[in-house]
Amino acid sequence: MFNLPNPQIGGPELFVLEFGDIVAYFSPYTAVLFAFALLFTVLVIVSRPERQVDIAFGGDAYYTKEVEPDLLRFQRFMAIACGLATLGAMVTGDVFNFTLFASMIGITNIGIVAAYRNRHVLNAAFQYGIVAMLATVPLFGGAAIVLSSTGTLSMWELFTAAVAVPLIAKAFLVLGVMGEGMAPFYIAKAEITRAQGAPFILMVHVSSLLLFLRVMEIVISM
């Protein structure tokens, strides 16, 4: 019933999942990204955080920091939510759903680090929050331009040669994803990684990279 219009980019379609008129699909490309997101979501669920070793300056002493149970529960909850949003973004066949998942990833990424009581980490989370908020304008604006210029948001239609998506819409989508997911790379990530809870902090990175990989496939295919 469904055939991906351009299998030369992410490979042929393997499996589709219909939700009414929204049809998620698994190609070799999206399936690999989905599997990777799933693997790290499972790792988040089963892992306990590391105990960071800090050196006490001015002496030979060092101490290990423990993650408080409340913080652990909150970080894990946010990381799982981030994993679920990433899973959705990897296989959705609808541009608007993709933008929704992308913004949810941005929110949960901030949540993972914002609960950690450290001035540097909180500053970084605050900066990330501002960029993520600003990025919703090009992100949803890109989807809106796609809809207004082509009449559809379905990737099954947009990927065909008959539908021409304006370059500005593609640029806005990439810009929006960079703001939502990739923001920490450029403004705050080094500071964010000061926070404890390796499996949860790693989810920030996993979701960013996977989101970037997916938007590349979408933009090249359109």
């Binding site: 992410g10 490979g11 990204l33 790693l202 990175h205 990279l209 990989l213 590349m216």
Partner: peptide
């Protein structure tokens, strides 16, 4: 297969490097 997938693997390697470093607790 697709070089986009190869590109994906290259990026995922970044997560490996990051995860390896974060997981130990060592500065």
């Amino acid at each position: 297969g697709s070089i986009l997938l190869l590109f994906a693997v290259y990026l995922l390697h970044k997560i490996v490097e990051h995860g390896m470093g974060l997981s130990t607790g060592s500065p």
